[in-house]
Simulated scan of single mutants.
Amino acid sequence: MNTGQSPVERTFDGAIEQVFAGGSRPPVGRYRLDLATGTWAWSDEVYVMHGFEPGQIVPTTPLMLSHKHPEDRARVDGVLRLAAETGRPFSSVHRIRDAYGRTRTLAVTGQGRRDPVTGQVVELFGYFIDVTESHKEAAAREATASIQASAEKRAVIEQAKGVLMVVYGVGETAAFELLREASNLANVAVRDIAQTLVHLFSGPGVTVFPTREAIDEFLRNPVPPGDD
């Protein structure tokens, strides 16, 4: 279906849709960069992203780069230089420090415009998208998942160690060594060995605690998960 959009506009809209797909809509602002003068035209949203009131300052390339996070500055400068040379669509996600010293994460997507007579790239234009909150939310989700996975991992290992401590009358360290040796034999993670051992006495249909002989056999010939 013909939407009436140019290929450039579709490129920009596609990039923005990818950001929006992550959750709530982040702030979006437009920009234009005059390559001959190095001056930028910002919509009000871009001023706000950088910690300024609309029209408070005259945005220039040196000013822009001064606000980039030191670890991202050279990469962003390289992206802009390449875009100025080729005019091809580009995108980048990088951090800035706004006028208040706060770190924000911006996505920028753009495209060059060529002079119809000389064919030279004379202007870059596109969107800034403030994805700070989206990144925070994603990081929080990842951290929560990591903490939960770590807690589950520790829990199943503690259960397996407890079984071995009771069955063999050994201490916590010795019980863990038994798990580690079985892990090495099966060439799988200690957590997987622990999980399989716990399954021996708590899995569906298990009505009796496994004998010491059964646990001996398991430790001698540990079965990786999914192979039983």
Rank of each mutant, 00 (worst) to 15 (best):
F90D: 00
H94M: 07
T103H: 05
T132L: 11
S91T: 15
Q111V: 14
S91W: 08
R95V: 05
A99Y: 02
G126P: 03
P89Q: 12
A99P: 00
E133A: 11
G119L: 03
T103D: 05
G119N: 08
E123S: 14
F125S: 11
T118E: 12
F128N: 05
S134F: 04
V121F: 09
T105L: 04
F90I: 10
D98A: 03
Y100E: 05
T105M: 09
R104Q: 05
F90P: 00
V108Q: 00
A99K: 13
I96Y: 04
E133I: 13
R114T: 15
S92G: 07
Q111H: 10
L124W: 00
P89C: 13
V131H: 03
G126C: 12
F90M: 07
V108T: 08
S92R: 02
V121G: 06
R113P: 03
T132R: 09
V93I: 14
T132W: 07
T105Y: 05
F90R: 02
T105I: 09
T118N: 12
Y100G: 04
E123F: 06
T109V: 15
Y100W: 10
G112M: 02
T105H: 12
H94L: 08
P116H: 07
T132N: 11
G110I: 00
T105R: 09
H94F: 14
I96D: 04
F90G: 02
H94Y: 15
V117C: 05
R97S: 06
T118G: 06
G112I: 00
I129V: 15
G110E: 00
S91D: 14
V121A: 09
D98W: 01
D115G: 07
S134H: 13
R95M: 13
E133R: 13
A107F: 04
V93F: 04
L124D: 03
G110V: 01
D115E: 11
V122W: 06
H94D: 10
G119V: 05
G110H: 05
I96V: 15
A99C: 12
P116F: 06
L124A: 04
Y127N: 14
V108W: 01
G119H: 06
T103I: 10
T118K: 02
S92L: 08
G119C: 05
L124S: 07
D115N: 15
T103R: 09
R113V: 11
D130N: 14
R102G: 07
T105P: 03
S134T: 14
I96G: 05
S134E: 08
F125M: 11
E123H: 11
L124Q: 03
Q120W: 02
G101L: 01
R104Y: 03
F125Y: 15
R104L: 03
D130G: 06
T109E: 01
T105A: 12
